[in-house]
Design a binder for these strands. Structure first.
Lengths: 345, 345
DNA sequence: CCGAGTATTGCAAGCGCTTCCGAAACTCCT
DNA sequence: AGGAGTTTCGGAAGCGCTTGCAATACTCGG
C-alpha cells in the first residue's frame, strides 16, 4: 500500500491562487475573507482532500480540541455509559476524546503526579474519582478545564446526584410497603482495587434518614458495605441471611450488588418479591431483565451534562453544578412483606 | 487560578548548560549522549517539571503515538471490555487512546468518507466493524496501521473468533445432553441501529453443523435472528414458545439475547434448566450471576491482542491473525431434557 | 474624480520539538 | 607525537499551521 502524503495548506494555496494565510482563514471561517475567495479555497481544499494537520494547528494555537475522560474502570457499565454519552456530545462539538483508565492506585497517583495530560487536552472529565483539592489545582494550573461526575468541588463544574435523597427514597419505598427489617448493602472502597471509584456514601445516610422517619430502629448488623461487585453482593446477602433476625428487604447501593444479592436469594430458595424484597441503585442496563426495582439517576445524562459543561467552560462560561434527583423505578423485586400479604387476604 | 506556561526545551537546555538538541536527545534516550550530560539534563528537566509538548513533537516527527479505537457502541459490555483491555496495553506502551464511537450509520459513513483520523493517530483498532476493502485501503493510504477485532481481511492484523466451532460446541453440548429440538437465537444487523456491529453469522452455521452431526432435523421455525438486545431476545423466546412443537433448548448467539430469553422463560413459569435449557455466547460479566451456561471467547484477550498487534505493526512487524477458540463454560442453565431425566430415575 | 475609511489579502514570525550535518573533543595505535 | 577514527555536542533548518501587522484594493461621500 502506498502511503500518500496528505495535502498541506501550501498546495491548497497554490491551487486556489492565494496565500497560505488566506487558506487558513478561509477554511476556519475567520471573518475578513470575501465570499468569492472563500468559496474558491474551499473548493480547492475539497479537490485535494485537504484536512488541516491537528498537530500543527495545535502547536500554533496552543489548543488541542481534545477532552480527556478519566474513569476508574472502563468495563463497568456505569462508566461506559457515562463515557458514551459524554463522547457523543464531545465529538458532536468537534472535540476528540482521549480515554484514560485509572484502574490501579499506582496508575492513579502516577497520573496526578506526573503531567500526563500536559498539552494533550484542553479539559478533563473525571468520573467518580476522588480528586483532592491539590490534584484539582494542579490540573487547573496546567490550564485544564474540569468537570466532575460524582463529586463536587468548588470551582469545577460538576454533576451531583442527590444520593442521600435517593437512598432515602429507596428505603421509604420498602418501609411504605410495610417492611420492618430493612438491610442496607453499601459500597466500600477497597484499597487495592478502586473498582467503583469514590463510593457513594450518602446513600447510606439516606437509608438511615428513612429508617428514622419511619420509626424503625437501625441495626448495625443490617448495614454492610462491601466492594462493588456482584460477588461481594452475593456474599453480603448471605451474611444477612445468617442474622438472628434476618431482614425482609434490602436496599442495595448499586444494581451490581443487587444482582449478587438476587443470586444468593435464588440459590437459597427464597423468592423475590414473595419472600424478600430488594431495591437496587443505578437502573443498570440489565436491571429490567432481572425485574429489579431500582433508583434511576440518569447515568447517560450525567455524561452528557459533564461534556456540555466542559465545552461551555472552554467557551468561557462559569462553572455550574447540575443536581440530579434519583427516581424510583418500580419493577418486580419489591412487594409487601409476607406477613402483611398473608393477613391481608 | 493562575495558569503557568509549561517549561520548554529552551529552559531545560539553559538550566543544564547544553543545547536544545542535546536536551531532546538526552530525554528520549537517543544514543550519542554521554551518561554525564544525560543525567544533568534529566535532572534539569525534573527540576522544572518539563514534559515535551506532544503537539510539537508530533509535528516534528509525524508520529502521534496515538491509537484510535473505534467501536459501534460503547455502552455494550463487549465493546467496553475490549477497549479496556486494549487501552491498558496501549497506555502501557506509551500510546494515547483516542476513542471513537460510530453509533449511527451517518457517523459511520462520515467517518470513513472524511479523513477524520488524518494526522490524529498512527493506527486504528476497529472492533466488530464491517470494514470494506476500500475503507481499509483508504485508511492504509493515510498511513494508518490497522487491527481488526471480529473481522478478518488480508493485510491487516486481526483477531478471529472461531465462531463456527463455537456455535457447534454450544449446540453439541445440548445435543449430547439429549435435547432433540434445539432452537437458535441469532443476531441480525438491524439497518437503522448498528447495535452490535457486524453480526457473527458463523455461529448459526456451527449450530447447523452440530444439528446435522447429531442427526437432528433442522427446522427453519427454530432459527430466529434478531437485533442483539435483551428485549429482542425476550421477544424471540416468546415466539419459540408459540411453536407447534416448541424447542426444549436454545442456543443464543449472545448472552444479552440469552438474558432476554431467560426473562421470558421465567415469566412463562418455565424453569431453567428443569424445563428448558439455554446456552449463551460471550461469557458476559453477568452471565455467572444468572447462572448462564455460555461460550467464553476471551473478550479481554481480543482487545489485548489487537493492541499488541498494532504496536507491533508500528514497529514494523508483519500483520498477524490470532485465532480464538471459544470454550464452553458450564453453569446451571443447561441440563438433560425433562423426559430423559424423568425416565432416568 | 479624490481622499478617507473599510474590506481583503499577503508577509513573515513564531509555536516547541526533532534531526541532519558539521565541528569539536577524545580516544588509540603506530 | 600525529593523525585516523570515534564520540559527543551545537547550529540551524524545518514540521504545517496561525496570526499580528502591513500593504493593497475597493467603498463612497463630497
Amino acid at each position: 500500500m502506498t502511503v500518500s502524503t496528505p495535502a498541506s495548506v501550501q498546495v491548497v494555496a497554490e491551487r486556489a491562487g492565494v496565500s497560505v494565510s488566506t487558506v487558513s482563514r478561509a477554511l476556519r471561517g475567520v471573518p475578513g475573507i470575501s465570499a468569492a475567495t472563500r468559496k474558491r479555497v474551499q473548493d480547492a481544499a475539497e479537490e485535494v482532500g485537504y484536512v488541516a494537520s491537528p498537530s500543527a494547528s495545535r502547536l500554533a494555537t496552543g489548543r488541542t480540541r481534545t477532552i480527556a475522560v478519566v474513569v476508574p474502570l472502563l468495563s463497568k457499565w456505569f462508566f461506559a455509559e457515562v463515557i458514551a454519552a459524554a463522547g457523543r456530545v464531545l465529538s458532536g462539538e468537534g472535540y476528540d476524546v482521549l480515554l484514560t483508565e485509572l484502574s490501579t492506585p499506582a496508575l492513579r497517583s502516577e497520573f496526578f503526579a506526573g503531567r500526563r495530560l500536559q498539552g494533550r487536552c484542553d479539559g478533563v472529565i473525571a468520573v467518580a474519582l476522588q480528586v483532592s483539592a491539590e490534584e484539582l489545582a494542579a490540573l487547573e494550573s496546567q490550564g485544564q478545564a474540569i468537570a466532575l461526575v460524582g463529586a463536587v468541588r468548588s470551582g469545577a463544574s460538576s454533576v451531583r446526584v442527590e444520593d442521600r435523597a435517593g437512598g432515602r427514597a429507596a428505603t421509604r419505598h420498602l418501609a411504605n410497603l410495610g417492611h420492618q427489617r430493612i438491610a442496607f448493602l453499601g459500597i466500600q472502597e477497597v484499597p487495592g482495587s478502586p473498582l467503583g471509584g469514590v463510593p457513594p456514601a450518602e446513600r447510606l445516610l439516606g437509608y438511615r434518614d428513612a429508617l428514622a422517619e419511619a420509626g424503625l430502629a437501625s441495626d448495625p448488623a443490617l448495614e454492610l458495605c462491601v466492594e462493588n461487585t456482584v460477588d461481594a453482593g452475593a456474599a453480603a446477602m448471605a451474611t444477612f441471611l445468617t442474622a438472628a433476625q434476618p431482614p425482609t428487604a434490602v436496599v442495595a447501593a448499586s444494581d451490581e450488588l443487587a444482582f449478587g444479592a438476587l443470586g444468593t436469594l435464588r440459590r437459597a430458595g427464597l423468592r423475590v418479591p414473595d419472600d424478600f424484597s430488594i431495591v437496587g441503585y443505578d437502573n443498570h442496563e440489565l436491571a429490567g431483565t432481572v425485574d429489579l426495582t431500582t433508583m434511576d439517576h440518569g447515568v447517560a445524562d450525567q455524561g452528557k451534562f459533564a461534556a456540555k459543561a466542559i465545552v461551555a467552560a472552554l467557551a468561557g462560561a462559569p462553572s455550574a453544578v447540575e443536581r440530579i434527583e434519583p427516581r424510583l423505578i418500580v419493577r418486580g423485586s419489591t412487594a409487601p412483606p409476607r406477613h402483611l400479604r398473608a393477613s391481608g387476604h
